[in-house]
Computed example of a mutant assay.
Amino acid sequence: MSISLASRSRPSWQVREPPPPTGRPLKAAAHLPGLRRVVAPNPGPMTGHGTNSWLVDHPGGTAIIDPGSDHPAHLEALLAAAGGRITHILLTHTHRDHLTGARPLGQMAGAPVCGFRHSAVPSFTPDIALDDGSVVAGLTVLHTPGHATDHLCFLTADGILFTGDHIMGWSTTMVPPAPDGSVRQFLDGLARIGALAPSLLLPAHGPPIPTPESCIRALIAHRLSREERILAALHQGPATLDEMMRRVYRAIPPTLRRAAELNLLAHLEKLRDDGRAIHDRDGWRATTAHGESPPSQVPGRPCP
């Protein structure tokens, strides 16, 4: 899930594509025949063209990452693309645009649904509980919280990483506040992924990302720049979350306003945890190194 906000120019890290066809397998790359995606028919402001359901061939069969939708045609397309050899259904996390098709597909294929051992959805318990460092269907599991507490990435033996919603090429990721998310954990996850030096990133929404290193560097810089702009807005004086929204964002489409509020609150929580902001009865305000309000106000800049 993302928060896509219009900007005056396209950021250098973005990778976009025309609306891909749904219902048929698309190769990740010409030289990677064992990696394919079927795009789910669930487009929207938070999902882009739809959820990528990735098919990963391994010696025992085919694993499906993020079935995404329970639309019958989508599930039938996944079964057909896998040739009836589905061995595992893997979830990067339990947001609806990833989880919805998991149980129905699992029942149709007779395959277990695998997810992080501490599900963020009380009503869902994975058939196979995964943890950081687990290996399933030839993939190594990385626990990467931030966008969701139960978020996982999956790494192939040759360095290709399925990033779920942690890294996407078409838009920035929405990071909710605690207890559901954390900007600090999100940034830590980006740094960890960068240190692994993956050769290709395959996200849950949008096209493959062929330049992982530059993309990750740009996303970290973008997130830290946004943090500084939020801090500058705080220096205008105490503000409620609603007032901060008016200071930070130029304009928000109604369909994205709630996501933007959550994203902003998550950044404010990080600033508070870093000792750079305080939340009290007057709202949010900036601090100095000694925890007091700054002696003068600094004009804020809007956040892109």
Rank of each mutant, 00 (worst) to 15 (best):
V113Y: 10
P177R: 00
T149I: 12
I160T: 01
A137P: 09
L161W: 09
H93V: 09
H147W: 00
P126K: 10
A129M: 09
G181C: 12
M174Q: 10
G138N: 02
T94Q: 13
G110Q: 14
A178S: 14
S182Q: 07
D165H: 06
V113G: 06
F116V: 07
F154H: 06
D180W: 15
T156R: 05
A111K: 12
S134M: 01
S171G: 12
L190Y: 10
P198C: 11
L155E: 06
G189Y: 00
F154N: 00
D132P: 04
I128A: 04
V175R: 03
H166T: 15
A157Q: 15
H151A: 15
L139N: 10
G133E: 08
L99T: 04
S182A: 08
H147F: 05
T140V: 04
G181N: 10
L142C: 05
P177Y: 08
A111L: 12
H95Y: 14
M108N: 01
G169P: 03
G164W: 10
H166P: 01
P112Y: 07
G138E: 11
G164V: 07
S199E: 12
D132L: 00
I160M: 05
P126I: 14
L142G: 02
D165Y: 00
R184K: 14
C153Q: 11
M174T: 04
F124Q: 13
T173R: 04
C114W: 13
P126W: 15
V136K: 07
W170K: 08
T92Y: 08
F116L: 12
L105N: 12
A191C: 08
T94W: 02
H93K: 14
G164H: 05
I128M: 08
A109P: 08
H143C: 01
R184N: 09
L152Q: 13
A137T: 08
A178I: 05
G110C: 15
D158K: 03
P104S: 01
V136C: 11
T163Y: 07
H147G: 14
F162W: 05
D158W: 02
L161F: 09
